[in-house]
Structure formats: structure tokens, C-alpha cells
Write a protein that binds this DNA or RNA. Structure first.
Length: 612
RNA sequence: GGGGGUGUAGCUCAGUUGGUUAGAGCGCCGGCCUGUCACGCCGGAGGCCGCGAGUUCGAGUCUCGUCACUCCCGCCA
């Protein structure tokens, strides 16, 4: 007989009755009746009830085994009597009579309870992550992640993609996020950087003549975390293709995303959520900013913002008409059914808008063929009729107004759209609604300095190519640049790349970088482009975010086995940590006095604590 | 770097306008219990109320500072 198990803990059924079997697993729960004792033995696969009574000499051993101890139990499978069958357990029609037991590893008192759904503090969960991961929900989340990744891999390979690895120790990339740096021992004073993404490598693979690359790629960015942004590192489904247009990229990846989401949309849900079928809607950036006030719209919210500047232009509402005359705009946010809301509901939205820095949130309500609200009396019937038409509203509805310059108005209107949609419960959450945001502007003006800079990704091909760069106003140039958005979350960003050295130099020149800078900062890639680079493009959906959405978790750390905490520390492995002076010497590194002082203070504090 | 929330038993939390000895559930230890499956019943141990100042006759409670965790802003081409 195998030393540990003949079956797993989720396997035993009625047909095994009478067999001599061996199970290994953790003590999930014990029910000690004094003379009769039940042990729920748990492993990755399930739970089996084992039973022993006082007549056995093994009884004290089982009684003494604490929760989460690891046991190997040998015995006979017995069918349970009808009244003792547990239909909630797949193995609940049988139990194992304990005839032999080996305590493989006893467990101490637990810092968190594995067999309970009770929330434990995150610090304790991360410090003892191996225990946290034993718990049902976390175990399921991590398995979901594993299954999603193998599904992605299968689907990508089926689409003709090839999996490659790219370096982890590489060069620091200019712009973008802060890099994680790794000091070089062999080159004193020089540093590697961990890749923020394999961006340049995947482009170089295209230049190298491979086609259809993908990788489940680790990415490292030294930026502060958020609930949906894991600290330090995360994973992308990174892919790139040669000789493609934007439409080719979309039609290659849409079936993968739609397929994966359809496959897993039922995880932990009463009924599977609906998923957008390919092809996903394509929304130009400018339209998204107008209609949704965001370049990552949540399409589950039915509200669409309208430009209603013309209604206020020349009107008696001087605050708005004056602003419109001065070049500002007015955005209208329809609120279907909101006319029935109380005065305090409108007041609450108004004070919310003020907390966002706006003067307020004006509105008009429509009822009984007339219009009410603080602004209504300033608008004549023709203007009100035009408003009904533009905003698509009628009796029972309301429209809110935001007046500012276009960018600010769009942004506040977008926030208001979300807030109003939630407040009126207009959002059917149980769906995954995808779209592409396309036609991003290539450049934008820095508010503070007035300088022209890249608005998204400097490696994107400008629409119209070199000619557009040479002849158009930079702020009017669009890029072959696109984002995948699902339920208001940016899932990926991608582009048709700029594969021409001459266009690259020109594009950077407009953003204020000379040829030498490009040669310095992107030497590998710009060189490569001088030896025949294929037109290419791709994208990189975030794996962690996809899993988070499919698992319906509000926090990305719930779908990562061993995440860093918010301060990018590993509480379990104790990273980052100080190192011996000798090792720093190897690396030609000396700590600053302030860093040394901080370490000394911390060490002192640690000593005091450990002496107690 | 800035703002909000939280910090009380091993864990999750309650704790009134500041007022005697700080509670509950789970876990732990002991006792009883031969059909439970979140077993049940009885008993017990376990607290620098994050830390440090201050106000007060008196602080878990109020004030200030500080630390930790977390959420958000900045940041994330």
C-alpha cells in the first residue's frame, strides 16, 4: 500500500464500501463525543469523515491531534446508515473506520482559523499565507487563477501564438513608472532594471522574424498600490503580431478574452454573468470622453452624457451662457426616473459635486409636461424642448449639468454619471461588458508646463505616419493606440507600433527629444529598426485583473497566492531585508547615513521586542 | 508625499454622556457525552485597551503626537 494514500479525500463513494484505503490530509474539524470521535480529513480534493470509538487503542492519538495537523489514516470504507448520510459532502455517503493512524506533522495553535469563513485581518493572513491559502475561498481563487491561465495559454496557442520568455534582468526604461533596480557585481556602479513589461523585447522578437508571440509575463513597477493594482509585480498576457492592422489584433484577441470570460463567468455566482460577444464595440477616445466622461467607461451604466452647450448659449442663465461664450462647455447627464427623487437626493449630489471641486451640480426635472429645478426658470420652452430631445429625456426624468472647459467637464460628468447610475440602481452588475477605446491622441499638452508630450505610449504609430507628423498640429494627431475596457476597468493597453526609425525620430522630436536621446535611451530598438522591421502591433491584458473580475473579488491580493502588502513588503518571507555589509561591498554599494540610521533604529526596536 | 478609516483576549468584534473588577462568539485547557457533520452541556485560563505624552479626582472612551494595517489622491509611458 502506498505510504501516504490510496485515494484522495474527495474521492470516496458508496462503491468503495468494504475497501481498505489510506487517506492523508489535514484535520479540518473534529467532533469529539467522548467515546466516539469524528475527524473531517481535508486535502486539495475534498473532505472525508473518519470515525473511531473508545474501544480502539488509537483513540487517544486521534483525540490529541489538533486541528490542521497532518494525518495518514488507514481503514475500511463503510457505507453510512440512511439517517447519518450527509448530502452536503460529495463523500457524505461513506466514512472511514480508523484502523491505523500516523501523525505526519502535528500543528500548533493556529493564528487564523482555516475551517472558518470568518474574516481575519490581512496582516495575519499575509504573515501566514500558507494557512490562509488552505481556506476554502482562497484555495478556490488560486485554482481559478490557475485554470484561467491554462485556458488562456490553450486559447493563445490555438490562435497560432508562440510562447517565448524574455529577460528579467534588463535595462532601465526611460519614462513610465519607477524601475526596480538590481546592482551589478561585475560592473561596479551599474544597475540592471526589472522589466516594467517586456515591451521592447516583444517588438524585437517581431524584428527577429518570429510572428505571433505571447507570454504570461511578470511585470515589475515600483509604484504605490491600490485595491486593483498589486504592489511591485503583476502579470500580463503579453502578445505581439507582425504584418497586422488594428483590426487583425482585435480579431486575434477577442475570441481569447470572450472565450475565457464565458468559460469562467459562472465561478462562485448564482448564474453565469453575460459576456460581450466578439467583435467588441469600438469607441473612439473622443466619443468616450464625451458620452461617458472617461476613457474606461462602464457600459453596464445606461446613462450617456450629452453636450448641451447650445441650450445655454445666449440663455438667461448667465453663469452658463457666459461660460459658453468664453469657450467652456456644458455637459448634460440624464437621470432617468429621477424626477420622483426627494429634494435631499438632489442636494446630496450637489454637495458631492462641491466636494469634487465643482461650484455645484445644477439640474432640471421634467414632470407633468413641465420643467422644474433651480435652472428651469432660466430656460424658455424652446430650449427645454431641445434639452428633452438632446438628452433623450421626458416626464419623470431629470438632467444634471456640468459647466467647465471640455476636459474638466467631461471628467466631472463621468464621475456624476457613475454616481447617478449607482444611486438610481440603473446598473445591472451581473455582466462583463467589453469595449475597445480607439483613436487615442498621440500627444497632449502638459497642463503645468505647456509642453507637448506623449499622451499614451511613445512607441505607437501615429495615424497618417510621417506625413501627419510633418504637416498636422501635434494635438490633432491620433495614434494607432487602443485600450480594452471591461466594466469600467482598463484590462489592457496596446498599439500598432511605430516600426520605422525615421518616424520614430520625428515623433520624439515633436515631444522634445533629440535624435541622440532616442539613440541613447532606446539604442537596442532604434538600431534594430534600421535593419528591416516588420509592421507589428499587439497588446497586453492584465491577468490579475481578469482573475479578480471573474472571481468577483474587490481586492487584487485575493487572487494572488503570495502578494506583497500595501507597502510592498512580504510579511511572510520578510522582504525587503537588510543585507550583510560584505554583500554590499561586493556590489560596491554604501548606505547613506540616513538609511543606516533607520536600519539601526529598527534593529534596536526589534531587539527590545524580542527580549520581552 | 497628502487625506480618510481602523487598532480592545490567539482570531473576529462589542464596550453608553469619561466612573468600581473591560465583555461576547470562535479558538485553547479541563470535565461529561457512542452518530456527529459549525456536535452538545459544564467549568477554566487568557488583556501594556498599538505606543508616548496631555486634560481630569478618574481615560479603553476626550486632545495632541507617533507607529502599524487598510482605502483613496498623487504616481502607475
Amino acid at each position: 500500500m502506498h505510504p501516504f494514500r490510496t485515494h484522495n479525500c474527495g474521492e470516496l463513494r458508496s462503491e468503495h464500501a468494504g475497501e481498505q484505503v489510506r487517506l492523508s490530509g489535514w484535520v479540518h474539524r473534529k467532533r469529539d463525543h467522548g467515546n466516539l470521535l469524528f475527524v473531517d480529513l481535508r486535502d486539495h480534493y475534498g473532505i472525508s469523515q473518519c470515525v473511531i470509538d473508545v474501544s480502539s487503542e488509537l483513540f487517544p492519538t486521534v483525540e490529541g491531534a489538533r486541528t490542521e495537523s497532518v494525518l495518514t489514516i488507514t481503514g475500511t470504507v463503510v457505507a453510512r446508515s440512511d439517517e447519518t448520510i450527509n448530502d452536503r459532502l460529495p463523500t457524505g455517503r461513506v466514512e472511514l473506520r480508523i484502523e491505523q493512524i500516523n501523525v505526519e506533522a502535528p500543528a500548533q495553535l493556529l493564528p487564523l482559523q482555516v475551517n472558518s469563513d470568518e474574516d481575519a485581518g490581512e496582516e495575519i493572513r499575509l504573515r501566514h499565507r500558507y494557512l490562509d491559502l488552505r481556506r476554502e475561498k482562497m484555495h478556490a481563487n488560486i485554482m481559478l487563477r490557475s485554470n484561467i491561465i491554462s485556458s488562456i495559454r490553450r486559447r493563445m496557442i490555438d490562435q497560432g501564438f508562440n510562447e517565448f520568455q524574455t529577460p528579467i534582468l534588463t535595462a532601465s526604461s526611460p519614462e513610465g513608472a519607477r524601475d526596480y533596480l538590481v546592482p551589478s557585481r561585475t560592473h561596479p556602479g551599474k544597475f540592471y532594471a526589472l522589466p516594467q513589461a517586456p515591451q521592447m523585447f516583444k517588438q524585437l522578437l517581431m524584428v527577429a522574424g518570429f510572428d505571433r508571440y505571447f507570454q504570461i509575463a511578470p511585470c515589475f513597477r515600483d509604484e504605490d498600490s491600490r485595491a486593483d493594482r498589486s504592489p511591485g509585480e503583476f502579470y500580463q498576457l503579453d502578445f505581439e503580431m507582425s504584418y497586422v492592422t488594428q483590426d487583425d489584433v482585435f480579431s486575434a484577441i477577442e475570441p481569447v478574452l470572450a472565450g475565457v470570460f464565458e468559460e469562467f463567468a459562472g465561478f462562485g455566482k448564482q448564474k453565469p454573468w453575460t459576456v460581450t460577444k466578439a467583435p467588441f464595440p469600438r469607441i473612439p477616445y473622443a466619443e468616450a470622453m464625451l458620452k461617458y466622461g472617461s476613457d474606461k467607461p462602464d457600459l453596464r451604466n445606461p446613462i450617456e452624457i450629452r453636450d448641451v452647450a447650445e441650450i445655454f448659449a445666449g440663455s438667461d442663465f448667465k453663469v452658463f451662457s457666459g461660460a459658453v461664450a468664453a469657450g467652456k462647455t456644458v455637459r448634460g447627464i440624464p437621470a432617468p426616473g429621477a424626477a420622483a427623487q426627494s429634494r435631499s437626493w438632489f442636494d446630496k449630489l450637489n454637495s458631492w459635486a462641491q466636494s469634487e471641486g465643482a461650484p455645484g451640480l445644477g439640474y432640471v426635472t421634467f414632470a407633468d409636461g413641465g420643467a422644474k429645478g433651480p435652472i428651469a426658470k432660466f430656460l424658455d420652452e424652446a430650449r427645454l424642448e431641445k434639452l428633452r430631445e438632446l438628452a433623450g429625456v421626458g416626464d419623470g426624468d431629470a438632467v444634471f449639468f456640468v459647466c467647465d472647459d471640455a476636459a474638466k467637464a467631461a471628467s466631472l460628468a463621468g464621475l456624476a454619471r457613475t454616481r447617478i447610475g449607482q444611486s438610481l440602481e440603473l446598473i445591472d452588475e451581473e455582466q462583463f461588458l467589453f469595449c475597445w477605446i480607439v483613436d487615442y491622441p498621440m500627444y497632449e499638452r502638459d497642463e503645468a508646463t505647456g509642453a507637448i508630450e506623449f499622451s499614451h505610449n511613445p512607441f505607437s504609430m501615429p495615424q497618417g505616419g510621417l506625413e501627419a507628423l510633418e504637416t498636422n498640429d501635434p494635438l490633432d494627431i491620433l495614434a494607432w493606440q487602443y485600450d480594452t475596457v471591461c466594466n469600467g476597468i482598463e484590462l489592457s493597453s496596446g498599439a500598432i507600433r511605430n516600426h520605422r526609425a525615421d518616424i520614430m525620430y520625428k515623433a520624439f522630436e515633436i515631444a522634445g527629444y533629440g535624435q541622440e536621446t532616442v539613440n541613447d535611451e532606446f539604442s537596442g530598438m532604434i538600431e534594430a529598426f534600421k535593419f528591416g522591421a516588420p509592421p507589428h502591433g499587439g497588446s497586453a491584458p492584465g491577468i490579475d485583473r481578469m482573475v479578480m473580475m471573474l472571481a468577483n473579488e474587490p481586492n487584487i491580493r485575493e487572487v494572488i497566492a503570495f502578494p506583497l502588502n500595501q507597502r510592498a513588503e512580504d510579511l511572510m518571507m520578510r522582504a525587503p531585508a537588510p543585507v550583510e555589509v560584505e554583500r554590499l561591498r561586493d556590489l560596491s554599494i554604501q548606505l547613506s547615513p540616513s538609511a543606516q540610521r533607520a536600519l539601526d533604529e529598527e534593529a534596536e526596536k526589534g531587539d527590545v521586542e524580542s527580549n520581552e
